[in-house]
Design a protein around this nucleic acid. Structure first.
Lengths: 316, 316
DNA sequence: CTGTTAGCGCATTCAC
DNA sequence: GTGAATGCGCTAACAG
């Protein structure tokens, strides 16, 4: 009854007597005992890289909200970039019944290891795991469509992209999508991959600018790289958006306040976190489970960093 | 024995037999059963505001590392800025024995409520709670000394500070310390408080600049406000550092890459998170417990945003 | 409709 | 030095 059993017949006066006692004595059901009995801990484990990039705050927040709504608590595991582990290294949490399921939110796919799939309830967040049916991802292709078509409409023909390495699943997908979209629009695309830090963005931008056909517009994969890119562009004297247009794939409030406010593609990060937890709870409850793509709208946040390329007349 | 009892006499052959079986059958001790028996969950609960500001990633990471080192897992609770709760609202986690202790890392002190102290093992991180002896904080006063004395050495006499509201304990301490230090050095100090966002920093900076005696140097409480401040300064045409020097109280790699790289005071955030967990574990283990101030060095990261004020000759 | 009981998996105590 | 028994607090199944 204390667990809220609905179909339970009980005399009102008895119920009231119990509830009164519960309240008066400050009784708290012991979660461990309950967990032991039901073999359900009521906890989820989530592995994230705790990076400076604020997207992780949103993802975490979305996940925590959804978990709370489902009566689950979330334990966070940090996977530092310098100590990448295989998802199976976290299985023990479920095997020891510390948690009921696993949200794998580390972006980096391990290369070179035989992809062994997990034997516990789990969900991959923002990446695709070796096993199908457990992936919760966003519409990166749609995001790239926003990116490419915005530039195409402005009259750009040569675009560049600075992004993290392709072992990161989202980067892989974005790169492929951009390539296809550019082909579709008769545009050329060149890519530079680097670590997702300011230094990485700086170096990659310089490399991009030293290519034969310098792009007239650049997309940048994340906020940290963006700062590096802005410095590189300042150094070579490339004005934004006059010499080169810029679009960030991370949205953040600070973009509005930069010297030239940066256009971005805003992704549904809260929803991503929430959907991953929902999907995991479904699996824990034995419900089916298929790959899910977040359908919440992506939005192109137009600011001042994109314009028609110099000397091009804007089509239409 | 499986729990690693040291003083235990056992025949080697028996031990080996057990350990073999353990390994072969893939036996996993059940954490819930153990928790129930020992009335120790092996989990800590940590309440954080999951904000965009990257300081929280560092604090979380430090806490998680220390927890792992102590064999504890950490469950994260998010306290959104628009739904501030009292710490007692999280006590239930310990009372239901979901966790052994509580790290309260929400910066905002609730005003107007009778400060009721917690009856479960807990620690306040980066703020002081109503009860003494459970606070783990950094040397904000030392940070302000770095800030004020750096500017004093450059010859500044009028400094301004843009920071969050004083209900946030760190802000309160920084403000008091700055006031005292400025008096000590015969400098004037003016303060503007605002929400810790870009907009807040923008507005506060404009207010600061509209004062009678415009300061020749400004400190800014956090990264988000910094971006707002930079925009405000650009708009009024104040050059950094020629017209005004700038120091950020949040350090972040991106500062190095801004148009004019921003000097900052770097705080030991990892250590803060770690120390809080250590302190909490001590309390859980029944060891004494006193307030702790992180002693790791603060460092003034000198970049290009600070210089002598216009027309002042640099002393010494 | 209500009160009693068995057992979840472990650690600890007690016989052996 | 080793095995068996007890109980942590809960829920579900059962007897009254």
């Amino acid at each position: 009854m204390l667990s809220g059993d609905a179909n339970l017949t009980i005399r009102p006066e008895t119920r009231d007597r119990i509830l009164l006692a519960v309240r008066e004595q400050g009784y708290r059901p012991n979660a461990m005992a309950r967990a032991l009995k039901q073999s359900r801990t009521g906890a989820l484990a989530m592995v994230v890289p705790l990076l400076r990039n604020p997207i992780w705050s949103s993802i975490q927040r979305g996940a925590l909200q959804a978990a709370a709504a489902n009566g689950q608590v979330v334990m966070i595991l940090d996977e530092p970039p310098d100590d990448l582990r295989s998802p199976i290294d976290y299985q023990y949490l479920i095997e020891e019944s510390r948690a009921d399921g696993l949200v794998i939110a580390t972006a980096q796919r391990l290369t070179g290891t035989r992809p062994q799939s997990l034997t516990v309830p789990h969900v991959y967040l923002n990446r695709r795991g070796p096993d199908g049916g457990n992936n919760v991802v966003m519409d990166e292709e749609g995001a790239m469509r926003l990116f490419v078509e915005h530039l195409a409409a402005l009259g750009h023909r040569r675009i560049g992209v600075v992004d993290a390495f392709k072992v990161i699943d989202t980067v892989h997908r974005r790169t492929a999508a951009t390539r296809a979209l550019c082909a579709e629009h008769g545009m050329s695309a060149t890519f530079e991959h680097a670590v997702d830090t300011e230094v990485g963005g700086y170096d990659a931008t310089l490399r991009l600018l030293s290519r034969r056909d310098v792009p007239t517009a650049i997309g940048v994969g994340n906020l940290n790289q963006l700062f590096g890119m802005l410095k590189a562009l300042r150094e070579v004297g490339a004005a934004v958006p006059n010499d080169v247009s810029l679009i960030s794939f991370d949205e953040d409030d600070c973009l509005e306040f930069l010297e030239v406010p940066i256009t971005s593609v805003s992704m549904p990060l809260l929803q991503l976190g929430a959907a991953a937890v929902e999907a995991l709870v479904d699996r824990i409850n034995g419900r089916p489970g298929t790959d899910v793509m977040i359908t919440d709208p992506l939005v192109l946040v137009e600011r001042s960093s994109t314009a028609s390329p110099r000397g091009a007349r804007r089509p239409r």
